[in-house]
Design a protein around this nucleic acid. Sequence first.
DNA 1: CTAGGGTTAG
Length: 937
Amino acid sequence: MYSRFGHIERARNVFDKMYERNDASWNNMISGFVKVGLYHEAFGFFRKMYGYGVEASGFSVASLVTACDRSDCMLREGLEVHGFVVKTGLICDVFVGTSLLNFYCTYGPVSLARKLFEELPDRNIVTWTSMIVGYLDNGDLEEAIGMYQRMRREGVCCNENTYAAVISSCGMLGDELLSHQVLGHVVKSGLESNVSVDNALISMFGAFGRMEAASYVFDHMDEHDTISWNSMIAAHAHNGLCEESLRYFYWMRRINKEINSITVSTLLTACGTMDNLKWGRGIHALVVKLGLESNACVCNTLINMYSEAGSSADAELVFQKMPDKDLISWNSMMARYVQDEKCLYALELFAEMIRMRKAMNHVTFTSALAACSDLEFLVVGKIVHALVVLAGLHDNLIIGNALITMYGKSGMMIDAKKVFQKMSNRDEITWNALIGGYSENKEPNDAVESFKLMREDGVPANYITIVNVLGACLTLDNLQKHGMPIHAYIVQTGYEPDNYVQNSLITMYAKCGDLKSSNYIFDHLAYKNSITWNAVIAANSYAGCGEEALKLFAKMRCAGVDLDQFSFSLALSVTADLAILEEGQQLHCLATKLGFKSDHYVINTMMDMYGKCGEMDDVLKLLPLPINRSRLSWNILISAFARQGCFKEARETFHEMLELGLKPDHVTFVSLLSACSHGGLVDEGLAYFASMTTEYGVRAGIEHCVCIIDLLGRSGKLAEAEIFIKQMPVPENDLVWRSLLAACKIHGNLELAKKAAGHLLELAPSDDSAYVLYSNVCATTGRWEDVENVRTQMGSNSIKKKPACSWVKLKDKVSSFGMGDQSHPQTEQIYAKLGELRKMIKEAGYVSDISYALQDTDEEQKELNLWNHSERIALAFGLISTSEGSPLRIFKNLRVCGDCHSVYKFVSGIVGRKIILRDPYRFHLFSGGKCSCSDYW
DNA sequence: CTAGGGTTAG
């Protein structure tokens, strides 16, 4: 009696005091222990009883097997009981047989359960249903249905549980035809009003997307239990009707229906896709109120909800506070870190799991491998690979795919290929990972060869395959050799209508320098959706046709195509590159209006746009909290600070990024090094360059080397710069020498300038900047004959100097000015203003620096020539065309002249306006007589 | 019968 009511201690007392015990005494104790969850006690009693020769009853053995089934660590015990059952003939007891079947279904493989099923001497409805449910739980839906059909053939009746399982299978299979048959059987059996059956029907219709049918079932049920409500909420959520899910939830609360962990889990999943933290946080509060915050599943969905909503900080908090973390909790948190590119954190969690001897599965290893997908972690990656082998998971398909990806991203294609060859199963993802690896590592021949083998192997290519293989063909040579034949293949095999394929074709041609073909493909497409439009906008932007790209964006809007986050990022990045603030702001407004304001990708490009337009305040307004910043956000922030001349902030930002566990990449270092170069921080710059590879595993690229040459050159260490060029880890290019030549100009080093110009002309014979810079050095040092010589040489080589040009943008009109430009309708006013400015600043103490005049004339003429510089004309025009006190933005296509820089400073002080001047190198923010660059640029 | 984690591409 005590055991049956769960008072196991009292039962044990009675049992211990008994003088004489019979079979029932033992059996009752065993089932009593199972009832209260003391599975190991139950098993201990069972062994003792066996030792005493007491006969076990079917009921107690069945409950013992159930105990082994429910406990997640009693596989061995379960097998022992099975042996006992066979020996004693208890296998004939249908309850024992069925519980054993359930045990095998849980511990899998399901084939063992099936074998037992076939051997069982006696079966009932529950046995059959258990087998069907076993298949369902294992995702083997065809077998589940097959079992059901055999059950019917053999004339076994079905109960509500059978139908529920079969209906669920139909839903997961997406087989509507079959569902009609089953529905017929259900109606015939009279179980159509059963709650479990109806609940299953709701889910099934939800899976089919037939919400009206799901609602019909729900509305016509006699009674609803919590599962009915949960099913309705889930069905709506799966069909993207999240608001509707919330409505059912509120209704459920209003009528005081019991809300359980599954209800909130389902809702939280819906909130993750709603891009709306508000609901998520509300439900989180409810979780606490209902006391569900210790439920592992609920917490896991909370982690994922916050992750999806981009709030990693909250996800982390939930994880840390969880009392009982299960495997999925660890896996979820690791996956989140990997997605945030916080690979070190992910690997730390992985290490902790090992230390704490936590159970791991293939998902754990997959995330660990993804965390190692970088050259820096190659050794760790190999260790994880070894652990995978130890765990016996090396033949797992998904793990194999992750291994190929890991080696590919570390640049180790030989290892990737080894893994590939050893795999016993391959799917299209395996091939795609391999081809993607070759493509990313710039091995187009191998990529194309693998693509060929893939087809020969009969593995169907999907759009990702095509995207990958096309991605390997992004140079003009490859376009003819590989790209175009692949295009032909695409046409032949009917991949052409696929939008992702179109996307990559448009991209491929643009990146190979053939924008015309990109536009041609786009123009001739019958069906264009957001992806296609985005692709053509990206192509034009990539090819340097920013204005065309923006026009296409406008056309896309007019065409009524949905703008997505990619459209906005693309258009915003064009406005960023052109530094056109007004258009950028308009896009910001539009993005806000259409609900893309919280998209991290859009936020990042917006920040970049404001940074490149010199609006640091707006960058900081948009900046996410540190914990939620991606590497991209950090890079943008550092480069924005660098461009504004805020070197201290740039450096601090870099260290803050490191502290938060993010890994800097080559872009981070370009920004950081250029900050050092513009700020004259020579020693620091050199130290960062040195640690870049050794500490952070970022290989030095040519762009980093150019920063260093710039850094040394600007600060006057020209000899060091020259030595650096000789010792650089990468082959030199024109940028290197141009940078050195520019430094020679600043410091008037004629001899080195000559050398640098020579190298530059070798590498870029038709480049005007070599001549111009060299002639400028000659002019600065007063070598006027040499200036003339260079001029003649340019003439005979028919090379033209890129003319200087400055422009001001007012509302929707751009006014541009060349040197001494008099073509503007307001020329008179402009020059009057110039005269006025000249007088004013002279009174304020300005003295012109005629060393910036590059023509050989007398001093007075030299000064007059300086006043013909395009940036001054643009300044005068800007001042008379905009309202007093408003900030003024001016652009120049070449580096600003030093004397003009000084004029701008004086003017900003006198007129009391902020003047922002952008040249191709950086921003100058003039205010109150000073410039943000502190005169070092 | 209802709920939670993972691989390629973007």
